[in-house]
């Protein structure tokens, strides 16, 4: 149980996918302009991350690893995740139009998002079990959401600021992102001691 909590908290804070692993920067910069879209996007990412982990772990453990085909995992995972997201989209549209409308435009965007692929691949380099992988995926998604929501707030502030001409737009956004990322450095080492 303690192990699960440590994995969850470290995935959210110390090993935040966006701010310390620099994965998923594209949606991080692209969809963080408004709080509403940021929450919608990160909810979709969290959902897909857990789902992708749930599907790719058995694939790797029972099909690829026993045959010595470790090097195929990236290709195979992309294939599986893309198909899975399409499937979820079809099913959602049928059974939950409300959820489909809320996540709809974001789902196709994240089919092969690097953060989603990153979670599934990193689960094996860390040697997690199936349960731990799912927790890690959930934590990574929540961490993504935390980063997105924080950064949406920062960007809304930047909108109202008098930014120097040369830094307007993406440059000031990247500088702000690096500062937010620096603050997350302060969390390093916290997860192991938090539940000691």
């Amino acid at each position: 149980m303690k192990m699960m909590l440590v994995i969850l908290v470290s995935a959210i804070l110390t090993e935040n996918f966006v701010l310390s692993k620099f994965l998923g920067i594209c949606p991080f910069l692209g969809v963080s302009k408004k709080l509403g879209t940021a929450v919608g996007m990160s909810a979709a990412v969290t959902f897909v991350m857990v789902l992708a982990t749930a599907a790719t772990y058995p694939l790797y453990a029972y099909l690829l690893a026993p045959n010595g085909l470790d090097y195929l995992q990236t290709v195979a995972f992309i294939l599986v995740i893309a198909a899975l997201v399409q499937l979820v989209e079809i099913v959602l549209r049928k059974f939950s139009p409300a959820l489909y409308n809320a996540l709809g435009i974001y789902l196709p965007l994240i089919t092969t998002n690097c953060a989603v692929l990153g979670v599934t691949l990193l689960n094996f380099t860390k040697g997690y079990t199936y349960g731990q992988s799912l927790i890690n995926a959930l934590g990574a998604g929540l961490g993504f959401m935390l980063a997105m929501v924080l950064f949406a707030g920062v960007r809304e502030r930047i909108e109202a600021c008098d930014v120097p001409e040369a830094l307007k737009g993406l440059p000031i956004t990247l500088i702000a992102a690096s500062l937010v990322s620096l603050t997350f450095l302060g969390f390093s080492g916290i997860a192991n001691n938090l539940f000691a």
Binding site: L69, A82, I90, R93, F95
Partner: peptide, 23 residues
Amino acid sequence: LIIAAIGLLAGVLLAVAAHVFAV
């Protein structure tokens, strides 16, 4: 074979799902 099988399976699954869950 494995990649082709995964691809084929995913394709068939999606085709069936698109038909079954068509709105």
